[in-house]
Design a protein around this nucleic acid. Structure first.
Lengths: 183, 183
DNA sequence: ATCCCGTATAGGTGTGATCCTATATGAACA
DNA sequence: TGTTCATATAGGATCACACCTATACGGGAT
């Protein structure tokens, strides 16, 4: 069984039942910093979930636009999600195109190498700013009425953002170190 | 055109002509910290390189074992490599199964969450130790006779290892921070 | 005597993912 | 009046990759 999009969809449907279209937006809004998904792939995977009995469709007729196919997680789906969450996670094989580029760019000389590093710095800077602004928005959204409990889910969602921030900062620190090593 | 294994193979063949078998070993030995490749995929990609005129095969007969199909990069291959090295590198879409797991594991409670973080810590620790030992081996191999110039290629290969080390350290720091945030 | 390892090549099959495209309609915009 | 946007679903083609298997033979270990 698929260990990736399947799980992302089950995890989101476990929070709120929704349509493929909603899932696309939800992924873009809340997990885009560590996952992405193509729309057609979402629909295909959703069909597999239903075929496997991990989700059920509730068709909600609408006027003027296509019916909503609202997907709900089933008990079997919830079990499959739990099982995956508790299963060992084998470390993924890295595929980092940037490091590959850096590894081979030496033959083009120092100026080309510096250009590669500069491009990386600007990307990492944009990435960091993006993550920080998401964190700030979350905090701002929370301050007006801090009645809601600071529950585990909230903290973990925040932790995934912090992960991205620390890695972006590590990347910037590494870029500084590497730039100095080239002088 | 393929922006990944193709380039890895061209990059390595540009350093030294070799066979598919050698490439598999070379990748495992020198770029495994940021790239991995399946043997059959290497042979397939190699065939594409030859079909596209980016590499040429020199057959070297051997006794008792299959002939060596030694692949050499062609001028067109060198140009394709240069072009890729200078082309803009669009940021890759992240697919981080661990962060997805953390994002959804909250529904299983705090103990299950701690277990996920502990597993991550041990993986990151192993990863860090592995990278550091590679760096130490490189330095040890160098000390006996430090006649060889500390050229750009060497420094960049070292930089790719440093990148992995800084990210592994960032991951460990993040794990500590996250563990504290759960208390 | 047997089995596995190293050398060397390569096909079969399935999966996950991306890019592009098609369909349908109301509402807002220019 | 025409275009684009938002809603909503979904197929086609292609790609990159992983996992498994097959072939061939010499050498060393059990």
């Amino acid at each position: 069984m698929n260990m990736s999009l399947t799980i992302a969809l089950l995890g989101i449907l476990d929070l709120t039942p929704m349509t493929g279209y909603d899932l696309k937006k939800s992924i873009a809004a809340s997990v885009s910093h560590f996952w992405s998904a193509d729309q057609s792939q979402i629909y295909r995977t959703l069909a597999v979930l239903v075929a496997d009995g991990l989700a059920e469709v509730e068709v909600i007729p609408q006027e003027g636009r296509p019916d909503r196919h609202e997907h709900h997680i089933t008990p079997a789906g919830r079990r499959a999600l739990d099982e995956w969450l508790r299963s060992p996670l084998q470390p993924e094989k890295p595929h980092d195109a940037f490091l590959m580029r850096l590894f081979f760019v030496g033959t083009l000389g120092v100026p080309a190498t510096r250009a590669v590093l500069r491009a990386r710095r600007s990307q990492a800077t944009v990435m960091l700013a993006g993550l920080q602004s998401v964190v700030e928005q979350e905090q701002a959204r929370r301050e007006p009425d801090d009645r809601s409990p600071d529950d585990l889910g909230r903290r973990l969602r925040h932790a995934t953002l912090r992960n991205g921030i620390l890695h972006a900062q590590a990347e910037l620190a590494w870029l500084t170190e590497t730039k100095e090593a080239l002088e």
